[in-house]
Amino acid sequence: MLGPGAADVAFEVNGHPASVHVPPHHTLLDALRDELGLTGAKRVCDEGTCGACTVLVDGRPTYSCMTLAVACEGRSIETVEGLAHDGQLDPVQQAFIATDAYQCGFCTPGQIMSVVALLRANKAPTAEDVHRAVAGNLCRCGAYPGIVEAALRAARARRR
C-alpha cells in the first residue's frame, strides 16, 4: 500500500533508470514534466482525449495524463526526448520536418510517439494504418495531411 503521501517510484525513462518521489494521485505526465523536466509531452486536455501527452509505456502508445505514476513502477517509458541519438534525429522526426507535419508544434511530440509505435509494429503501413495510429492524437492546427505523409515517408526511409 502506498500513499496518500509521496512514495518512491522507479522506472526507466528513455533507456535510463529514473526515480521520482510522488503521491499516488500524480500522473505519469505530472512526473515527466514536473519531476523529470521532460516537457516534450504536453498537457492539453488532461483527460485522455487529445493525445498530446502520448508516450510509450513498455512500447505501447499511452496517454500519460491518464496513467498514474505509481502504476509505472518497473516499466519502460519512452518520450520524444529519447528518440534522437548522438544528434541524429529519428527518421520519423526527420520526416516530420521534411513534410512540414506541424504548425504550432504543441501536439507534435505526441503525434511522433504514436507514429514511432506504429512503425515498430508495422514496417509498411498504409495510410489507413496511419489514420488508426494517430486518430487519438488531435491537432488543432490541422497538420494531419503532413503527419500522414510523414509517417509513410519515415516508413519508406526505415525500409531502405
Binding site: T54, R60, P61, T62, Y63, M66, S114, A133, G136
Partner: peptide, 9 residues
Amino acid sequence: AATLQLKGM
C-alpha cells in the same frame, strides 16, 4: 471505439 491509446490502456 475510442482511440488506439485508450484501447491499449
